[in-house]
Computed example of a mutant assay.
Amino acid sequence: MSLISQCRQLREARGKSLGDLGRLLGMAAQNLSAILLGKKDSRASTLEALAAALDAQWVLVPNERLAEVRQVLEGKGSGPDRGARAALDIFLDQE
């Protein structure tokens, strides 16, 4: 999924209007709409400001880790912390 489509989805999920975001970014809603529709290119600094306005961050993910990151984002990547001490070890250390 592209960065622009992720921004579009997050804007909708956060319930932010184009006008609200445009005011936060200091740009016309029409220009923001063109960016989010992929009709207009934007500077990285504008996209960083857009992410911040949506309370989000850009993350560069190496392709070999993309599947893992997607699982985590979908809530399917959580599991036991294999590096954590076992409950039995903690209990025995208390004695």
Rank of each mutant, 00 (worst) to 15 (best):
S2E: 10
S5N: 08
Q6W: 08
Q6M: 09
Q9Y: 12
L10G: 05
L10P: 05
E12Y: 08
E12S: 10
E12A: 09
A13K: 15
R14G: 02
G15K: 05
G15M: 03
K16P: 01
K16R: 13
G19C: 01
G19P: 01
D20M: 10
D20T: 13
L21D: 00
L24Q: 06
L25H: 00
G26A: 04
M27N: 02
M27A: 02
A28Y: 06
A29V: 00
Q30W: 01
Q30L: 03
Q30V: 02
N31T: 01
N31Y: 00
S33V: 01
G38K: 01
G38I: 01
K40D: 02
K40L: 04
K40F: 03
S42V: 04
R43Q: 09
R43N: 07
A44M: 13
A44H: 11
T46G: 05
L50M: 09
L50S: 08
A51T: 06
A51G: 05
A52Y: 13
A52I: 14
L54S: 04
D55P: 13
A56S: 07
Q57R: 14
Q57I: 08
W58C: 05
W58M: 12
V59D: 13
L60W: 13
V61Q: 06
N63M: 14
R65H: 15
A67N: 13
E68G: 11
V69C: 11
R70M: 13
R70W: 14
R70Q: 15
Q71K: 15
Q71W: 09
Q71M: 15
Q71E: 15
V72E: 10
V72D: 11
K76Y: 12
G77E: 08
S78P: 10
S78D: 14
P80F: 11
D81L: 04
D81H: 06
R82S: 11
R82E: 11
R82Q: 11
G83N: 07
G83L: 08
A84I: 08
A84G: 05
A84N: 06
R85T: 08
A86S: 14
L88P: 08
I90M: 09
I90S: 06
F91D: 15
F91S: 13
D93A: 12
D93E: 13
Q94K: 15
